[in-house]
Design a protein around this nucleic acid. Sequence first.
DNA 1: TAGATTGTTAATCGATTAACAATC
DNA 2: TAGATTGTTAATCGATTAACAATC
Lengths: 211, 211
Amino acid sequence: MKKEVKDVSMAVIRRLPKYHRLLKELMEKDVTRISSKELSTMIGFTASQIRQDLNCFGGFGQQGYGYDVGELYNEISRILGLTSHYNTIIIGAGNLGQAIANYSNFEKKGFHIMALFEKNPRLVGLQIRDIPVLDVDELGSYCEGKNIEIGVICTNKESAQDVADVLVNLPVKAIWNFAPADIIVPDSIVLENVHLSDSLYIISYLLKNQE
Amino acid sequence: MKKEVKDVSMAVIRRLPKYHRLLKELMEKDVTRISSKELSTMIGFTASQIRQDLNCFGGFGQQGYGYDVGELYNEISRILGLTSHYNTIIIGAGNLGQAIANYSNFEKKGFHIMALFEKNPRLVGLQIRDIPVLDVDELGSYCEGKNIEIGVICTNKESAQDVADVLVNLPVKAIWNFAPADIIVPDSIVLENVHLSDSLYIISYLLKNQE
DNA sequence: TAGATTGTTAATCGATTAACAATC
DNA sequence: TAGATTGTTAATCGATTAACAATC
């Protein structure tokens, strides 16, 4: 039983993707070894925090040496669950849905996008890469027996909660919501609301309050 | 000189868009008055935190009554700088750039998208709503004298830092980056890196570590 | 071995929550 | 006025940072 079963704070978890990203870059630069101090200057967290974060999941380093970049990358990939496979569908095949479907990196990380669903008949029948755009009315029948794990909501604000309700009943295990609404689902469903505008509004705030 | 000139922690600032969103919903439901306690149940922060947050910017409530929804919405809009106007350009007119250009709500909040820039000749010349897609080579000449404040990076990972460097030299005041890379800009430039994959990876982590 | 750097405990800092006097 | 709810101070909690013994 691994250490990560015990509670790790969300503050730590939300830093993991950044470690993952940076380690990938280091690998691409053929860096094989790194200390928490070097990581610190690159990533902007303190060396102490980095060591604390990593030690929530195990002792991946070696005293006097640091961390093996490739090994640490693999560990963080595993911790994040990026070595698993997730059947995924996207609801809404507008620009945003298409952008996500086109982002082949997700496929590489195990998020297998099986289909997009759309109500606009002009989009139904398209292929994004090799992913079909199906009529949203087929959603229930299509998903039957397919063990869909993640549903991505790329509809407008008005449809988001309705779509979420349908996804919950399929059932999916997680919802990734891009509609600008705070949708509500049972606690048993993993939910990430992504509000693109939030960070734009923060930009606006910071511009206004710059000295 | 308003209270908000003094330092407010980023933790508070990052909650403001959520208040803004919720108050908008309340207005649409014709709710005119709300207490921190009622807000608490809707938004999921404690009533105490809500009062603390709002008091960073001023006393908007009234003892024994609560907050006036419309007034509070206006105050938060003002605090976030959504009553100002920002000249904005988007670099990269792929699906994501188009999605953002199509999202007319940003326009309503004062983010005026003047043009998209794209290197793919098949996209140059398009119009998104009434926004022109121009050749990226025209970026410098187009922006001259136009006081562009915000640059949105919707390119691929490889071009992101180069584009950022160009934007910094225009200069823009802020960069909203959607490319999956941690770009680096001088401290004087407001920067928000949006990593769509981060929240997907968190979903993956939570799915894996559900009990 | 000596030097370096981790893993981990203890100290500090900041953010959240609780409590309550002020007051509408 | 009495009831309600804010604004604000004090207490608590959790996260970050510092320090250092362990050890490669």
